[in-house]
Design a protein around this nucleic acid. Structure first.
Lengths: 214, 214, 214, 214
DNA sequence: GATGAATGAGGATTCATTCAT
DNA sequence: TATGAATGAATCCTCATTCAT
């Protein structure tokens, strides 16, 4: 279905989420959200994020897309495979999005800020819901599935590390900075309300950026 | 059972974890780990942390303490009540530990570093098994139970905020710094291996401290 | 499923129990006894009557229709819902039966006698298994379910009251007469043996009728 | 404990329920309501009547008298034995009460009316709660226990039959009349509210009497 | 691709009963 | 007699998964 991560380089910069998804679908990297499989994945992403994987039943999933629970197994071999597929799609989309954001940045500092904002948008925006699942439900995945997702994630993490190195974060340990940022940013899912009159996502990105850079 | 958080002030500084637990048990703040209820709570903390709440069965719990599953309900009304009790005990113990650590620090900078180290120790050391549950299984708790734990957590967070304010972290938003730290530190559970020949906990605390302060 | 009690008026008089059930099934008032749900309801009626609701397990029920206990919850949300459904079906069937019996009676006296006999047949005959459950297991039903059954029962009780009023029972309190009759007749379940060489149901109906009328 | 039913003859006429209980306790026919066993029986009678035998747990019982569930088995070998004991005590008390009521009646008609009123009082009055259990929970009793209670009940039923025969009820089948009355009267537990501003117990007895006699 | 009935192992929970203290 | 911890079988119910239609 998807051959290589290099294909992503062809994705033009500065697309809207919808356009980006459209492009990736055309390239066969993402499932068409209008297809039965795509609607299932979107519903799963939404429910797994809201209720958690263990607390979401196959029946909930089926009801959400208007089919019966038995029919789900025409699309996926198991519930865990659905989680795995969600994580893969989320990873692919987030990678494309990050690359696009990182490339359009002027200076190294701006690049890191763009990465932070891109990840925050992935976590909180409805475009491809489910990013927080990557962290929160990691342990619900079998080791084999973890391996699959990890491979897809490599490019994503490479972009991050490049940005951190270039921005010269303190502590001269880019990997540690990234790890702290993963936790810090994914945890925003639990407390940050983008719809609040308070902080916006760009503002939150900005403040986080300033805390992590000297 | 426990009247007020002020009582904690009586706990002397610089005790070993075992001594601290002993003191808190004597004050009626913590369940005696040697009692049936205490052994159950310890086993639950361990298993919930390792396997997750949903993937731990009541039978697993019972087997761990050498009783039958039905006997558990002599001590707790439901599985969720066990999770709630674990979180409360963990919070109480971690609070006492943090206060003790913060008080023994010389300067403001040192105080924040001590807080970071204390929380890392809580997450990774066996002294406070179950600390990571507070973050990872938060959504497995009913809203009423969340409220109960939240009240106990207030003092803990107050110590943190005081330390952050005093240390003059950049970004002049102590609450945000704390939130990012919660996520960053709790996520270390997923990747940091204290038993590795690599980083030790004090070292990790030190590096994290330097990243978060100018 | 069933729109209005008036539909019952269309049921022709003097059908055999089987024919009456067939007619009601066609009208969508009753579950088809040949369907899985119908077989389950019949088995439940039988077992609840014999052993009582509390002493009948979901496994007993499943075994009776040749499925596994888990499969029951494909058809009903809970054990109590099965009891509720049984009571509703019994009420609908008994109502149709009573109306048919009352309408075919010549004079007022005969009408009351027909009602008594109809209820006795409902209690003791296999045609309406489960009628005694209505009285004996009433308290096993949640209040919401009681309300549902009560509404269906209205027509049944109206026929009774009409018959009592017309027959001019002594004591000029038709509601009281009906209440005493409910208890008196349902209690026959505990002592009357229709298969005995002694009293037949028509004879018992006749004697009861004579005791309750001057 | 109690040697023979003849002893009952010594009970004087026209005592208050409390006095009657006192007398029977002195004669060793009834358990002292102030003793642990007596308080347990009273609590059981109350709860079995309110919730039903199956829906009342041994823990409920224990809580009601302020002991722990395990302690109950110092007084009774099993839960069923408690039900049996309740039924026996209720039967003994109701017998004494009926005899007393029947003996103080002037004419045969009045005697039957007194029986009806006495049974209604047993069902609805708080003096010895639990009379309705005799009918409603009969099937919760093992056959051996049923036999025991049945023997105690003989005298009670003899008084009833005598009264019915003497009052010349219609239908010339005193046993049938009694059976209908058992059902009719015990069922009043489900609908009659003695504390209502409506019917009083003597009034209800009167009306019932007039319906059952020409 | 979808249905819906069934599976069957496993889930939390209940509860009468036992027994050492 | 009372306690309270423990038993253990049984209870209702859940849910991912299968499969004939």
């Amino acid at each position: 279905m998807r051959e290589s991560a290099q294909v992503l380089a062809e994705v033009p910069t500065q697309l809207s989420p919808q356009e980006l998804i459209g492009t990736l679908v055309e390239q066969g990297m993402l499932t068409d959200p209008a297809s039965p499989r795509g609607r299932l994945l979107n519903a799963a992403a939404r429910l797994f994020e809201q209720r958690g994987f263990a607390r979401t039943t196959v029946r909930d999933l089926a009801a959400e897309v208007g089919i019966l629970s038995g029919s789900i197994f025409h699309h996926f071999a198991s519930k865990e495979q659905i989680l795995c597929a969600v994580m893969k799609e989320v990873t692919i989309f987030a990678s494309a999005r990050m690359r696009s954001a990182a490339e359009s940045a002027g200076c190294p500092q701006e690049k890191l800020r763009a990465c932070i904002q891109s990840e925050l948008e992935a976590i909180h925006e409805q475009a491809v819901p489910g990013f927080s699942i990557l962290v929160m439900e990691w342990r619900s995945l079998s080791e084999e599935s973890q391996e699959e997702v990890l491979q897809l994630r490599e490019e994503y993490e490479r972009i991050w590390l490049d940005a951190i190195v270039a921005a010269k974060c303190p502590g001269d340990d880019p990997a540690l900075v990234r790890r702290l940022l993963v936790g810090a940013l994914s945890h925003t899912y639990s407390w940050f309300e983008p719809r609040d009159r308070g902080l916006t996502i760009p503002e939150l990105a900005d403040r986080t950026f300033r805390i992590f850079t000297p």
